[in-house]
Amino acid sequence: MPTIEVKDLSKTFRSRERTTAALIDVNLVIEQNEFITLVGPSGCGKSTLLKIIGGLIRPTQGSLTYDGHAVDRPQRSVGIVFQEPALLPWRSVLDNILLPAEILGLGMDESRKYALELIELTGLTGFEAHDPHELSGGMQQRVAICRSLISKPAVLLMDEPFAALDAMTREDLGLELLRIWDQDKKTVIFVTHSVPEAILLADRVVAMSARPGRIAKIIDINLPRPRTLDVEFVDGFRDYSVQVRSVIDQGQKRGTAKAAVS
């Protein structure tokens, strides 16, 4: 099972008018079953980094390896959850969850059984036959999470999956995700722009700064698990918040200063 290694990675986007450096000199080693959050201001390249790790975008420079093997395309062992649920409107909840099983050619009977387990685990029981538009935003994102888990991926990539949800739904889903992860450990890389969310979930927080996007600091979060919302009232939590925020703020100030000069 993969240890993911990102080495000297850079990404520039070229359009006719300009080239933009999205990521510069990113080095990151992610251990198996680690819960990593990437946090930073918008434009820091955190989503780009996630997509590169998922093999959806190729880096301009540097390498990405899973267990030492170079990776340049999407892997079967990786599940992805996007910011929007991206549920196919012509499929029921159950059929949406089964989509990866169909495409990857997994056993359908077994997958159906597992899908029903996931539906129960995420509290969607009774909604199997519903169409996506009949569900609330939070429920839709639960379906998307089930869909990402159906292929039993070793790595789960989540690109601001709760960003479009209200604060309470967001906390609920975060804790739910932790519960699922506790039961069935896998490597999770989770992108967010919320500092508390990043700390609440993570083993390690990767704080990024913008323009150009780079890793500013990697902070180990030594808070006890299983975590609940009460964690946010522990002193340690506040210290981590201050730390992460100061790193991000510094990066932003530097970015603004540069922009002002140029």
């Binding site: 998922g54 093999g55 959806l56 079967r76 996007f82 991206a86 196919l88 989509l99 495409i103």
Partner: peptide, 20 residues
């Protein structure tokens, strides 16, 4: 995002056509 989704699942062009 639909295309990205099936692309992340290593779908063939035929699968992309039929399913999305």
């Amino acid at each position: 995002v639909f295309l990205e989704l099936v692309q992340s699942l290593c779908a063939t062009s035929l699968q992309v056509f039929i399913k999305v």
